[in-house]
Design a binder for these strands. Sequence first.
DNA 1: AGTTAAATTGACAGCGCTGTCAATTGGCTA
DNA 2: TAGCCAATTGACAGCGCTGTCAATTTAACT
Lengths: 344, 344
Amino acid sequence: MKVTINDVAKLAGVSMKTVSRVINKEPSVRKKTYDIVMSAVKELNYQPNIAARNLAGTSSFAVALVYDNPNAYYVIDMQNGVLSRCKDEGYELVIHPCSSTDAQMQDEFKTMIQRSRLAGLVLTPPLSEQQDIINLLDEMSMPYVRLLSGREEQNEGKNNSILVNDFAAAYEITEHHIHHGHKNIAFVLGDKEHKSTTERFAGYLQALKDNDLSFNPSLVFEGHYSFESGVNGAKHLLADNNKLGVTAILGGNDEVAAGALFAARLMNIEIPAQLSISGFEDSPFSRQTWPKLTTAHQANNVISEHAARLLFSKTRSSRKQEKDIITNFTPSIVVRESTGPAPL
Amino acid sequence: MKVTINDVAKLAGVSMKTVSRVINKEPSVRKKTYDIVMSAVKELNYQPNIAARNLAGTSSFAVALVYDNPNAYYVIDMQNGVLSRCKDEGYELVIHPCSSTDAQMQDEFKTMIQRSRLAGLVLTPPLSEQQDIINLLDEMSMPYVRLLSGREEQNEGKNNSILVNDFAAAYEITEHHIHHGHKNIAFVLGDKEHKSTTERFAGYLQALKDNDLSFNPSLVFEGHYSFESGVNGAKHLLADNNKLGVTAILGGNDEVAAGALFAARLMNIEIPAQLSISGFEDSPFSRQTWPKLTTAHQANNVISEHAARLLFSKTRSSRKQEKDIITNFTPSIVVRESTGPAPL
DNA sequence: AGTTAAATTGACAGCGCTGTCAATTGGCTA
DNA sequence: TAGCCAATTGACAGCGCTGTCAATTTAACT
């Protein structure tokens, strides 16, 4: 029933250590030996014991995913992406939800790292943007990968960040509206503490500028990443029978856009005939509205998978480096039914 | 930096084994000894090494949460509930998303169990309703706890199930509508493969019966647990200018209800003045609609925590039994703005 | 006090694997 | 062919803890 590394060694006619080398893809193993061992592994269906590896080795076989994010869809995508890579690599995934505002979080964080003897961790926004956490990890010289909102040129010299180009996404979405003849394009921003908010806003501004449209500050609503904020924002922007003449609204994310959509419906505004609305992220949320949202697709499960790859590439130097790790993602626009030409 | 059980033993002036006994809350430890050891543990801030415990002991210190559920909110709640208990008990949580329809799932399942040397697992619907999985676990004599939709009387004799009384929830919600004077109460059902669907439907029927209202099959729409299904269901039920005279709709869950809400809005039906709509589960979804949904609150994080407790109580017989584990949950109605008196 | 059983504690091996370092092999040059 | 270095392999200890079982202490009796 239980197959140990010793059984494999006997069957292959080599030492345990050599089997260990094969399992861990260490160099200095002859091709022939490798094949013999591998066939023995397969014949016995050998499964390395993670606990023993953790105990005996210097580095452990567990990575943590740390998040403080109310968006369940986002979290699940992150988990699944990292998890799939972990399975391939034979690692365990420790999930660690936490509150970034909690004062004792750092302690709890430290305890977790000690207890689990982690090989490394993946940080998602907004924790990945918190300098004190980064410092703490650097102090402990613990490998980590950050998921951040940012542009490619900002990633130079760093080799532990995965950037999502929210600037470009916002730029593209704004141009989508502009090309549809929209002039008065409003923006319901997300939480301003999040870097994604400032990046998206910057992209929006740049697109306006590049298309010779003037920026009207009253078309910007400073809100939060929530449905309700979208409702409030849209109500505010469209107040007084839309005296501002808004014909398009960028929601800070899909939830915000869904809220805006709802508010517009309540005001008997036809979507997209009278008003175009777009979101960001392409969460399942964007398909649960009616009409479905035009949004910027961001493959969070893919992104998180690459984050995991990057982490693994840093963790095990003995293994050959993976060369196809993408560290810069640019969301691409998905046009659905919530946007269209500007009304005449 | 690294504190081992040996350090604690020295400081406390006892053997390693005694420290081990204290850590594991084994019986046969004098109160005085216990206190001495515990103070040493605290002084050194000793953290047991999970890998070593797993390796040395017969049972491991990891439990798995297995799910096949597209509802991210549900999954997150489940995770958090089980996770909080795991932290208290010093266990690890292994999350295992999988597809119940996938043919090779059982194999993968087995592999996971072998690899991780699990102490036990928590199964959520619809996996918890699959007999082949139950059989497999029984064969391996692996402890598990099932989360199921069902009524208290059905839980007798079983000690590995946590029941959510969807019957009672549906009964209560249906009566809520009835007491508001509704007569033509429609129901957009969820997936009929899920036991929660049949339970909720049964509760609805019972409530109608107990209040001397006749059951009209054409007021039932067989749908799915999705927003879109809610839209379609409501459209169907309210067709032809509501010739069926529907004044209230039960959504199979909150997503369905949200869909129904949206469809009604599109038809310019006022909620709740002309039509009452209710959901189930009280997911964040139900607060992201406008008006907010009346629904049946189901504290999934609490439920999953009790599932974990139940599992732990079965896992370590040496530890004193927990007596306050709730194995039967009855959701309670939360009245918000989407329901009201029947129109005249 | 003396005896006996029960409760409490400790010594020690070993869980399955990897790190260290020494032994062996093979490939190459002179 | 001998000689030498690098590549490859193996022997062995030990990671931090728990199970086993024996040693010791305590309590409960004649």
